[in-house]
Amino acid sequence: MKGLYYRASVNDAEPKFVIQETSLPATLGSHQVRVQVKACGLSPLDLKLIEDLGIQRDLIPVGREVAGVVLQVGNKVSFFQPDDEVVGILPLDSPCSGLCDTIDIDEHLLVQKPEKLSSVCVAGALRDGLCAYTALHTHVHMAAGHTLLVMDGASSFGLMCIQLACYHGVKVLTTSHTPQTHTFLEQLRPSVGVQDPLVARVIPVYKDSSDLVSVVLEETGGLGVDIVIDSGVRLQEESSEDMMLLPHKHDIISVLGVGGHWVTSHKNLQLDPPDCRLLFLKSASMTFLNHEVWTASSAQQGRYLHILKDIVEKMSVGVLRPQPEEAVPLYEATVAMETVQRQQKKKAVVQL
């Protein structure tokens, strides 16, 4: 069978993704499950993180968010039986590519897939759901009555944050990067219950990003928000159009209320002494969002499985409604992954 792999490039050349022939071991591990893959989500590879964890391989497997059907179980597997539909995320050091027809995976990395939830939908949204849960539950412990500012709410991750927060009674503000996404965010409604807008205020930063602080403070009566979740940060004044859509780090700290929490996905964030002083005066905190920590460490395996189970259950009943990703066939996987890696925020789903 064949899988998709990243071949380490030399001299910072373009990343190269190749289809490689592979095979599974003859015997299944005692706690492993053999799964026939039905759909696989493609997300950007964090090559620096892989290097930091000491994973050194000529070929790095690509495609880790998988949905499929159990074919065979190890002799000590207690959670699953053959023909069960399952979803999960392959660990960073997995030898298997999620685009293989059949993979072996530890039972403690999988959860049952609800019958009415499509494989393509869950494979495309599982990672973003995990990120949203990690940010809102694990890091900031959101509660009803909190106020949340989500940057770029129309992104797949931002949309998950908005829907999850609204379900728990949080007031949500968000930013839009284009007129089309602005209209989309203003028209967001829950699938069940009172059909009030999910977002209390959509702030169009494509017009003038300098309005962000004044609009947020106006909306919160000058108090600021309890939680900010970014999708990238400007560390200094940038000239490029894409960077100008991102908030400046000082603006994010300025809109935080007393005791507020800032969750950032910016891996190389640097705060200057005035920024730290402002955080201190507000008794506010900042957290780095690294969703890979769940599979990189087994310290909280039970909580991780609980999160995955809750995500798929909320998707199946319509509480979480990700934007549908158009599935691409396997023969287009290489081109799709190159696009995902180049654009970073883009996602793709391959249907097998």
Rank of each mutant, 00 (worst) to 15 (best):
E325N: 11
S23A: 15
P247H: 03
E107D: 12
V319C: 04
L281E: 13
N11L: 15
P322R: 01
T102I: 14
G259K: 03
L198F: 07
G259P: 01
L352Y: 10
G145A: 13
C100D: 09
G129S: 13
C166W: 00
G29Q: 03
T22C: 01
L185K: 01
P179S: 03
G54S: 07
E107I: 01
L110A: 06
A123W: 05
P15I: 12
A333Y: 08
I311E: 04
H261M: 08
P274D: 12
A125V: 07
C276G: 14
K16F: 13
S9W: 00
K2D: 12
E65H: 10
N11E: 11
A165S: 09
C96M: 05
P95H: 09
I252Q: 00
K116C: 08
L271E: 07
A26K: 09
V233T: 07
R189D: 12
T134G: 05
L53I: 10
C96L: 04
Y5R: 05
G222M: 04
L330T: 13
M142N: 06
S239V: 14
K116W: 00
K282V: 05
C40H: 03
V263D: 09
K249G: 01
H168C: 10
T339V: 09
T339G: 10
D12T: 08
L49K: 12
K38M: 11
L149P: 02
V172T: 07
K113T: 08
K207G: 12
T339N: 15
T183S: 13
V225L: 05
L320P: 03
V122P: 07
I229Y: 09
S119V: 05
A296I: 08
T22W: 06
T334F: 03
K249P: 02
V233C: 06
C131E: 14
G124H: 06
L278N: 11
A200L: 09
L24A: 04
C121H: 00
D242C: 09
G41A: 11
T134E: 08
S209N: 06
K48H: 11
S316N: 13
K16A: 15
S240G: 14
T220C: 03
A336Y: 00
G124C: 07
Q301S: 14
G29L: 05
I89C: 12
G54W: 01
G129A: 13
A125R: 02
S97Y: 06
D106Q: 11
L42H: 01
G232M: 04
P179I: 09
M337I: 08
S30D: 14
L42Y: 04
V172F: 00
K113Q: 08
P91A: 09
L42I: 02
A125Q: 08
L117N: 10
C40P: 03
H177K: 04
S94L: 03
L308S: 05
G259W: 00
H139V: 13
L130Q: 01
C166A: 10
Q32R: 12
G74S: 08
Q163T: 03
G29E: 12
L28F: 09
L136I: 13
D196F: 13
G153P: 01
V328N: 06
I252P: 04
H168T: 03
L24G: 01
F280K: 15
R127V: 08
G257E: 06
L126P: 03
L49W: 01
H177A: 07
Q56M: 10
V335Y: 09
H108Q: 14
D211K: 02
T134M: 10
L271T: 06
A143Y: 03
